[in-house]
Each structure stands twice: as structure tokens, then as C-alpha cells.
Amino acid sequence: MPPIDHDRELRRREAPVRTLTSEELFRGAQEIAIAHAGSYYRLKITRQGKLILNK
């Protein structure tokens, strides 16, 4: 019987990361605000289609 890869087994048991598409997140807007730990961050879609996060 092969040895158990404990790290792999632990990763397998973890819940999958919640994933949203940018379309779901932005809903047609080019910029959204994210409130986190008492601060606000701006997430923008650039003209080149990349994402930029600013505090």
C-alpha cells in the first residue's frame, strides 16, 4: 500500500473556493467598491480588460 500524502488529503477535504465571474461581480459597471475591515477599496476594469485594486 502506498504512503498517504497528508497534505494532498487535507487539500481534498477543504471546501472549494467560492468563485465569481467578473460579469457577476461588476454587473455592467467598470468599477466597484469593496468594504473590508473598515476600509474601502476600488476594483476597476481597465481599458485593456485587466483588474486594478486601489485603496
Rank of each mutant, 00 (worst) to 15 (best):
G38N: 06
R42D: 05
R8C: 12
R47D: 14
T19S: 15
A15W: 07
R18S: 09
I32V: 15
R12V: 05
I52A: 13
K55Y: 06
L53I: 04
K55I: 00
R13Y: 07
Y41D: 04
F26S: 06
D5W: 11
S39Y: 11
D5Y: 07
Y41T: 02
T21Q: 05
R11M: 08
S22M: 12
I32E: 05
Q48C: 09
K55L: 01
A35V: 12
R13W: 13
F26G: 03
V17H: 04
E24C: 08
S39T: 00
I45N: 00
T21M: 13
I34M: 03
P16V: 01
T46E: 06
L20E: 06
A33C: 12
T21S: 15
S22Q: 08
K55S: 14
T46A: 12
G49C: 07
R27E: 01
A35F: 10
F26E: 06
I32Q: 03
E23I: 09
E31A: 00
L51I: 03
K44D: 03
P16T: 08
K50T: 11
F26T: 10
P3I: 04
G49M: 03
T21Y: 01
P3Q: 13
L25M: 13
E14Q: 15
A33F: 04
M1V: 15
K55R: 11
Q30P: 00
G28S: 10
I45K: 04
R11H: 03
G49L: 07
T19R: 15
A15M: 08
N54P: 00
D7F: 09
E9H: 06
D5I: 02
F26A: 10
V17C: 09
A37R: 11
R11K: 12
L51Q: 04
G38D: 08
K50M: 10
R42W: 02
D7S: 14
V17A: 07
R42H: 14
P3S: 12
E14I: 02
G38W: 09
T46V: 01
L20D: 08
K50S: 05
E24F: 09
I34P: 00
E31L: 04
T21E: 02
I4R: 14
Q30H: 04
P16K: 03
L20K: 12
R18K: 15
M1Q: 13
G28V: 08
R27K: 06
A37I: 04
R12S: 15
E24T: 15
R27D: 01
R47V: 09
S22A: 15
G28C: 07
A29T: 09
A29I: 04
E9Y: 14
L10K: 12
D7Q: 08
I4G: 07
P16Q: 02
K50G: 06
H36C: 00
I45V: 11
L43R: 01
E31T: 05
E31P: 00
I34S: 02
L43T: 03
M1S: 15
I52P: 03
A29K: 09
L20G: 11
M1H: 15
L53G: 01
H36S: 10
E14L: 11
D5F: 11
L20F: 13
G49T: 01
Q48R: 15
D5P: 02
S22G: 08
